[in-house]
Design a protein around this nucleic acid. Structure first.
Lengths: 150, 150
DNA sequence: CGATAATAGTTGATTTTGTAACTAACAAGC
DNA sequence: GCTTGTTAGTTACAAAATCAACTATTATCG
């Protein structure tokens, strides 16, 4: 091995740096779905995340959504306001703790949720189709571990 | 299979939706490195990306960086201005095309680049250590394909 | 009980991003 | 060589994210 080789060897390569790769892949793979909720429903990223949490897990508080999705409470607060304005969700004060708001989707919210689910499902299948079934399963598993690092 | 089972079967599960997983993994896995460039060098995300492109590939134009990193030209423009203010890079007008600016890191910029490289390298090893060598290799490969989808 | 701390969520000020319009330089076609 | 179109990069304004301070309510503990 020449000295030029060993110089190269431990040189940093941006193209394999995991945080960069993850961000680039996330950005790229979100573009198409982003158009669905943005252009068609005028929604922001945090808004579809809140909508999907409520659609997926049923009623939740703002705090619970924030913890699960790791979104800051001010972002949640504003997303909830906008979703409420559009009549996609309802707030209800908790009887046991009046600081807490219990959030649920309205019928309109559920409809939008289901429509976006269909789009998401199809898009996910398209992305998954880029790899073998085993590979995708492993990818999901690894991403989940990375996401839950904390 | 009961009807309750088949109902569940095609229900959308947010926790395995690839764009969401990718974003969550990207966010989570970037936190620690973000602290390095943000807290220690007062840099923004786009700024370290520009810095790393110049450090990694040598001199480039704003446009080339934007294409490789898929960053919009206004973001690049502002990142370049800030990096220039901090004396991390120099602009030089191209002789053959006076619209174009050729960007290079200053010595100070190279120093910061190398310091951040060390941090990045160590952090990447830490992340990679969560999985087997084969798994990480496959992960990088898959992420790269997702990032290059276009 | 009453003071202090903690929690859920909101609001306002500042920073950062996104979008569109802009300048300056070059390219192509006539 | 002059009009039209294109490209590299900047700037201005609007939209959104961030951060800190705030209100209202509940929990803790002397």
């Amino acid at each position: 091995m020449t000295s030029a080789d060993s110089d190269k060897k431990d040189e940093f390569d941006l193209r394999v740096f995991l945080p960069y790769l993850l961000n680039r892949a996330a950005e790229e793979s979100s573009l198409e779905f982003q158009r669905a909720y943005k252009d068609r429903y005028g929604m922001l990223r945090t808004e579809w995340r809140v909508l999907f949490h409520l659609g997926n897990y049923g009623e939740m508080t703002a705090k619970e959504i924030g913890e699960r999705a790791r979104i800051h409470k001010t972002k949640i607060s504003r997303a909830v306001s906008r979703l409420e304005q559009r009549r996609y969700l309802l707030r209800k004060r908790s009887d046991t703790d009046r600081r807490v708001e219990i959030l649920t989707l309205t019928v309109a919210g559920q409809t939008v949720y289901r429509e976006l689910c269909d789009i998401a499902q199809r898009y996910d299948e398209k992305l998954a189709g880029m790899f073998s079934a085993d590979e995708v399963a492993l990818l999901r598993q690894m991403l989940r571990r990375l996401a839950d690092m904390v």
